[in-house]
Amino acid sequence: MIWFILFIAVALATSIFMMVKQKKSTKEIMLFSTIVLLGFADWISIFLERKFNPNHWIASFIDWISL
């Protein structure tokens, strides 16, 4: 997992550096970073064996509203 964290940290830093160099808007950089961090959180949840399963959440919600 440590290699994955290092990889993401380096990739994110390089990407942001390149985006700044390409004069991308702040909004785009923020959106990019948010999606990467969401993906990173999802991957960490997989490594920690507490997977985020969207199907499970949707099924629970449908069960809950139909009581």
Partner: peptide, 26 residues
Amino acid sequence: LFQVNNRSWLSISLILLVSGLSLGFD
């Protein structure tokens, strides 16, 4: 939605999210 002109960076970032989510199903 966020009025961004270039798709490339967003499509790259989604790879991480989509590949992670696809592993979420048992």
